[in-house]
Design a binder for these strands. Structure first.
Length: 431
RNA sequence: GGAGGGGUUCCCGAGUGGCCAAAGGGAUCAGACUGUAAAUCUGACGCGAAAGCUUCGGUGGUUCGAAUCCACCCCCCUCCA
């Protein structure tokens, strides 16, 4: 059942490195296997950079295996130095503990906890690390690690070689902690495979070695590739920062828009990475798009699929509702109810008292978060790139927000849909 | 403990007394072109509507004037012990 899974993963380009390549297919075919992937709490939400490994767990579960999602309550207190340019700031245990809870809930949505013998589980490495005493750790675990080998790892090389940065013992030890996780999960759950991002290769192989030494068991590792964009810029960033999985941080609408904006050069790859659509279907879509010459459909498919995966049917419906009303036609078609709905569905919105309008339009839009600074709004105003309920606003009106947001220009008494540039919308309610 | 090197605007990285809100590149934002693409071209890019205000690790000082000079402090790196 599982060589087929591996073949599919390869076809999707999801396999970057494999530890134990020769035996892994047979091992997977040999029955239900347990695998894990770790997620360190470095914020109160996961972001789309975590999506590929998260979906990986699900892919394995769908193929009949048992996934463990590990939340790094302990490792999150230390900080992974892998390929990081600088030493990281430590977070307090209270803060990390709070993040652990949130991330546990998020990760849980992607795996099935009610799947019989291959039901997923969420584990926290703080459970076995918290009670570990230093001497036991150094004697029983540390003794298996060769510093000579550790400093050879590519993941820390930069920190060791580059002038201007350093590596504390704390972060250097991270690899040992993660390795110990693997050995511990192997002991507790018979876990035999760790998946992770390509930056985790060093940590994964460390765990494989430790498991062999401590448990005399042969275990495997698999990394997924780093997601890149054809234009060389970093994947997963928008002007407002990371794209989060938490709807309170990145609304389903913004999430949907992010994927919709995928470049042609990336979109078919992304479909393979981030959706469960069969590869053949994706290839067919690519062919059709190429023939059509014009606007491709792939972005819409990608946005729909991934938004549904992360935010469910309801989140997707909300995203589509907003997208359609904003980008495909007349605002006139919207009812007062629709405006309320838009706000609820995640369109950025704010409420201002009519008596408390700021002195300038730039101030108003910047404060609403439509632009990083008033300067940017100024630029947009000067280029006729600001529309209020469809009507262009010029720089000369900057000093008169009361006129720009006059009652007579409102929709349904107090709604002003402001557009800045081509894609940024904000709903103002002036009462 | 000793010797040396370094901390500049989101990032990289110039800048050693006025011409510096600070070169250049990247990222980002806006415009044109388009498909809510890509590439390209244009403009913006510390904050502010403006007057003006606040920056170059920190604190003091020298000077008409400092990112640039001096003192002390903090942090980082390299080598030696």
């Amino acid at each position: 059942m599982s060589s087929a899974l591996l073949a599919d993963l390869r076809a999707r380009g999801l396999v970057f490195q494999v530890a134990g390549e020769d035996e892994l297919p047979a091992w997977l075919d040999g029955g239900m296997r347990t695998l894990y992937c770790g997620f360190d709490p470095t914020a109160d939400s996961l972001h789309i950079g975590h999506l590929v490994p998260l979906l990986m767990l699900r892919r394995f579960q769908l193929a009949g295996h048992r996934p463990l999602a590990l939340v790094g309550g302990a490792t999150g207190l230390i900080g992974d130095p892998s390929f990081k340019a600088q030493e990281r700031q430590l977070n307090t245990p209270e803060v990390v503990a709070g993040w652990v809870d949130k991330i546990r809930d998020q990760a849980s949505r992607f795996i099935d906890f009610d799947a019989g013998d291959h039901s997923a589980e969420v584990v926290n490495n703080l459970d076995w690390m918290a009670g570990l005493d230093v001497l036991a750790f150094l004697r029983d675990v540390g003794k298996h690690f060769s510093v000579n080998a550790m400093i050879q790892k590519e993941s820390v090389r930069q920190r060791l070689e580059r002038e201007g940065s350093g590596l504390s013992f704390t972060e250097f030890s991270y690899m040992i902690l993660q390795s110990y996780d693997f050995a511990e999960l192997n002991r507790r759950y018979g876990c035999g495979l760790q998946v992770g991002g390509s930056d985790q290769w060093g940590n994964i192989t460390g765990g494989i070695d430790l498991t062999r030494r401590m448990n005399s068991d042969r275990v495997y590792g698999l990394t997924v590739p780093l997601i890149t964009k054809a234009d060389g810029t970093k994947f997963g960033k928008t002007e407002s920062g990371a794209v989060w999985l938490d709807p309170a941080r990145t609304s389903p609408y913004a999430f949907y828009q992010f994927w919709l904006g995928a470049a042609d050069a990336d979109v078919y790859r992304f479909l393979k990475y981030f959706t469960f659509l069969p590869v053949a279907e994706i290839d067919e879509l690519e062919r059709a798009d190429a023939e059509r010459a014009g606007r491709p459909e792939a972005q819409a498919v990608l946005a729909r699929e991934v938004t549904r995966l992360v935010h469910g049917e309801e989140g997707l419906a909300a995203a589509l509702r907003i997208t359609e009303s904003l980008f495909s036609g007349e605002l006139g078609g919207l009812s007062e109810d629709d405006f309320r709905q838009l706000r609820q569905d995640g369109l950025p919105a704010s409420r201002v008292a009519r008596g408390e309008l700021p002195e300038t339009v730039t101030q108003m839009l910047a404060e609403a978060g439509m632009a990083a600074s008033g300067k940017q709004v100024k630029d947009a105003l000067g280029r006729k790139a600001v529309l209020v309920n469809g009507a262009s606003v010029g720089w000369e009106e900057n000093g008169a927000p009361a006129e720009v947001f006059a009652r007579g220009r409102a929709l349904f008494g107090g709604y002003y849909l402001v557009r800045l540039g081509k894609k940024k919308y904000h709903l103002f309610e002036v009462a």
